Simulated scan of single mutants.
Amino acid sequence: VAESAIVGYPHDIKGSALYGYVILKDTGESRDRENLRKEINQVISDTIGPIAKLDKIQFVSALPKTRSGKIMRRILRKIAEGDYANFGDTSTLLNPEIVEEIKNEKI
């Protein structure tokens, strides 16, 4: 994993769950995605505890960031919730096209 962002989203049983957006290093690009999901959750479970496991993991090529480098978790949270209606002002993003890419590849 090169970079990641974790956000909460509503879950029918748990109330809320964790959704992870993960950027892989070049060496991880060719690996099986299901095995990677299991490995990532195993590392999280071993390091933090089973309560912190991610319910969904989406592999992305980039994260929506401002020009200063701040990850726009507000946008990622709306995508995880399935709310595509109003992302707010995306003109300040370094790469606004990534929002559409993430939305289209949502799990």
Rank of each mutant, 00 (worst) to 15 (best):
G69Y: 12
I71H: 12
Q42S: 07
I48W: 08
V43T: 13
I48P: 06
K38H: 06
Q42T: 06
I51K: 04
T27H: 05
D32R: 04
V60L: 10
N41D: 07
N41G: 03
R74N: 15
Q58H: 14
P50D: 05
I44W: 07
V43A: 11
I23E: 07
Y19S: 01
A62I: 10
S68F: 07
R73H: 15
I71M: 12
G49S: 05
G49D: 02
T47G: 09
T66N: 04
A62G: 13
K38V: 07
R74A: 14
Y19C: 00
G20W: 00
I23V: 09
P50T: 02
L36Y: 05
K53F: 01
G49M: 02
K53G: 01
I44A: 10
G69F: 11
A52D: 05
K38M: 02
A62L: 11
A52G: 00
K53V: 04
D32K: 06
I71L: 12
D46W: 00
D46A: 03
E29T: 00
E34P: 01
V43M: 10
D26T: 05
Q58A: 12
E39R: 05
L18K: 11
F59V: 12
I23M: 11
L24Q: 09
A62T: 11
R73T: 14
K65R: 15
D32I: 09
G69P: 13
R74W: 08
D55A: 10
S45I: 00
G20E: 00
K25Y: 08
E34A: 04
N41E: 06
Q58F: 11
G69Q: 14
E39L: 07
V60Q: 07
V22T: 06
R67W: 13
L24R: 08
S68T: 15
Q42V: 00
K65V: 12
K38Y: 05
G28F: 02
T66H: 04
R73A: 11
R31Q: 08
